[in-house]
Design a protein around this nucleic acid. Structure first.
Length: 617
DNA sequence: GACGTACCTG
DNA sequence: CAGGTACGTC
């Protein structure tokens, strides 16, 4: 006996989806910062030289970058260190041999190509040098912000490390140590930040330079032009790869350094705020990366979170910029890693890219995206890489497949199989889950956590959510229950990870089922009256009834399910109710159906156990 | 305010 | 079937 009344039901649609571990979400903030800081080591304009050299002496270049990082880390001022490295590097660059980036060119074309490449390189380097010296490259606002950050630093520490008293006590006894570590930490982050920014600019300039160059050659020898074009493309690709690799290596080294210095960069410490970026924020994304707030802002805001909302200057609510969200969207945290899993340290090449904020590939993806499409592209266009396609996550397939669907477009064409993640596209959060757009970030994360394949696309298709089979099953369940409680839904859709969205969708399904059901009832009741049936006892519902056929066609289209007799009884009772109400002119009351609903909702039956196990009945 | 529901619309 | 809205309940 299931007497679930509507008002008794579904009061807990979001049950079980609140347990988000928001601090984990902070990891990317920090990690992005780290990247940014790493980039700073190249902000001297010599990155081109380094990268070009790296194609020949990859290892050596890495060591250099490490050295730069180290020296800049120790230096008190990033600017200072920058200039020193800059001069050093420009000398090296001047003395650097011609680049042998030839990637399969004919021997004849090699010399002109080298000359050409040298010229190119000179040009690019010049651009970079100008960039590095320009106000945009390192605005004063940054240092001001940095000063503010430093002032705020103790607050953060107080929050995250055992309270103010402890912290102060610890620093008073070992103040230099504390300050050094904190400064070092922030310096590293700052460097990564700058590095990332520079990388974008670099990519932009690269494309600019190479694009400009093609027309020049059109007048010359056609074959040479084609060769050059191919070579140019190859060079670009090589440079891109090198850049990406260099940055990743840099970050690697930074992390190594960080861990070797004993800095506590755990998410709890670095990103203690539970109030991560809200879903609203994510939903605002959509502009190009260029339109997004500058990386400086992103970083600063991320830092504000690190400081645990220590001031009004950068409250989490300010974090409405889309870029970081767009970037992070595909990197949501898998369910299994809600809390503890993500808190592992982040060796860069270790964890799988599972839409996991803390995974390395996420960041390298950003870089690759930058390198491939330039800094003007929308990060929302980053493809959601399914685990199976993740080159660094062989174990990713172990994640639970049960996922959710926000606004899943269930179509009959999908019946019988789960859509593949590969079909997923870019992410736009505002399509995530209507009508619950105001989803909190924790919930959003929760959804992602439960859905390794969650991919939010403008075309909207979240894999592994409510499938057509789920719909079919829900329809069959309607034969037993017209007003299923959320608990019933959860019980009978065990392969679905529930959250507000899923629950709402399922509830909406049943609402639609009821709507159709009651429409049919009213229609046939009125028809009976029109047909002159004067006694309600003359109205029955059998399997031969037209009414039943209509209902069966709707809920059991394949007719492969034996509709329970009880449903026929309920249908008959409903029809009688409608007939009586209409025949007594109660339908003049706008809310005349309410009384009927009240009766019908008490006629729910228990759903057979088989429904629990069968995903496709 | 969140939630569930009915109703209307496309 | 889903989106939007209004209403009632908690």
């Amino acid at each position: 006996m299931n007497l679930s009344l509507p008002d008794q039901n579904m009061h807990n649609p979001s049950e079980g989806c609140i347990e988000d571990d928001k601090p984990d979400l902070m990891i990317p903030c920090f990690r992005r910062n780290m990247y940014d800081e790493s980039l700073a080591s190249y902000s001297n304009g010599s990155i081109i030289s380094q990268l070009l050299r790296k194609t020949i002496h990859n290892k050596r270049a890495l060591d250099e970058s490490h050295f730069y990082l180290s020296s800049s880390t120790i230096a008190d001022s990033g600017q200072e260190d920058q200039s020193s490295v800059s001069s050093k590097d420009s000398t090296a660059e001047a003395a650097s041999p011609s680049c042998h980036l030839s990637t399969g060119a004919s021997p004849d074309g090699e010399r002109p190509l080298n000359d050409h490449l040298q010229a190119k390189r000179a040009r690019v380097e010049n651009i970079i040098r100008v960039m590095a010296g320009s106000p945009n490259s390192r605005p004063h606002g940054d240092s001001e912000r940095e000063n503010k950050r430093k002032q705020r630093l103790p607050q953060h520490q107080e929050h995250s490390v055992g309270g103010p008293a402890n912290r102060r006590a610890g620093c008073s006894s070992n103040g230099d140590n504390c300050n050094t570590k904190d400064e070092e930490c922030h310096k590293l982050k700052e460097q990564l930040h700058s590095m990332q920014r520079l990388l974008r600019q670099l990519q932009e300039k690269f494309l600019q330079v190479y694009n400009q160059e093609d027309p020049e050659l059109e007048d010359s020898d056609e074959t040479g032009y084609l060769v050059h074009q191919r070579e140019s493309q190859n060079l670009q690709d090589a440079l891109k790869q090198e850049l990406s690799r260099a940055v990743n290596d840099c970050v690697d080294k930074v992390f190594q350094k960080v861990s070797s210095t004993g800095l506590d960069l755990s998410p709890q410490r670095m990103c203690p705020s539970p109030d991560m970026q809200g879903a609203e924020r994510k939903s605002q994304q959509g502009g190009s990366a260029q339109e997004q707030p500058h990386p400086e802002e992103t970083t600063a805001k991320a830092r504000s979170l690190e400081y645990y909302e220590s001031t009004e200057a950068q409250s989490p609510q300010d974090q409405t910029e889309a870029l970081s969200l767009v970037v992070r969207k595909p990197a949501m945290t898998p369910l299994s890693s809600v809390a503890p899993t993500v808190k592992r340290p982040y060796p860069l090449h270790q964890p799988p890219f599972q839409f996991n904020y803390s995974t390395p590939l996420h960041d390298s993806q950003i870089l690759e995206h930058l390198l491939k499409y330039g800094p003007h592209t929308n990060f929302g266009g980053l493809p959601c890489m399914p685990p199976s396609m993740d080159r660094t996550s062989p174990d990713s397939v172990d994640l639970p497949w049960d996922t959710i669907t926000m606004r899943s477009k269930v179509t009959s064409s999908h019946l019988g199989h789960h859509p593949r993640p590969a079909a997923l596209g870019p992410v736009t959060v505002d399509n995530l889950c209507l009508p619950h757009v105001k989803m909190e970030c924790g919930e959003l994360q929760n959804m992602a956590e439960r859905n390794p394949y969650i991919c939010l696309n403008s075309n909207v298709h979240i894999q592994e959510g409510l499938t057509p089979n789920h719909l079919k099953k829900a329809k069959l369940m309607f034969f037993y229950t017209r007003y299923p409680s959320s608990n019933v839904l959860k019980t009978f859709f065990p392969d679905v990870k529930f959250n507000r969205c899923i629950t709402s969708q399922l509830i909406k399904w049943f609402s639609n089922f009821r709507e159709f059901y009651y429409i049919q009832m009213e229609k046939f009741a009125r028809q009976a009256i029109v047909d002159g049936i004067s006694d309600v006892k003359d109205i029955s519902v059998s399997r031969d009834s037209e009414l039943f056929r209509a209902l069966n066609m709707h809920y059991n289209k394949a007719n492969d399910f034996q509709v329970p007799d009880r449903f026929l009884e309920v249908a008959e009772i409903t029809l009688h109710e409608f007939y009586n109400a209409i025949s007594t002119a109660k339908d003049s009351d706008p809310s005349w159906k309410k009384a009927i609903y009240k009766v019908i909702c008490k006629l729910d039956s228990d759903v057979p156990e088989e429904f629990k196990t069968s995903s496709c009945l």
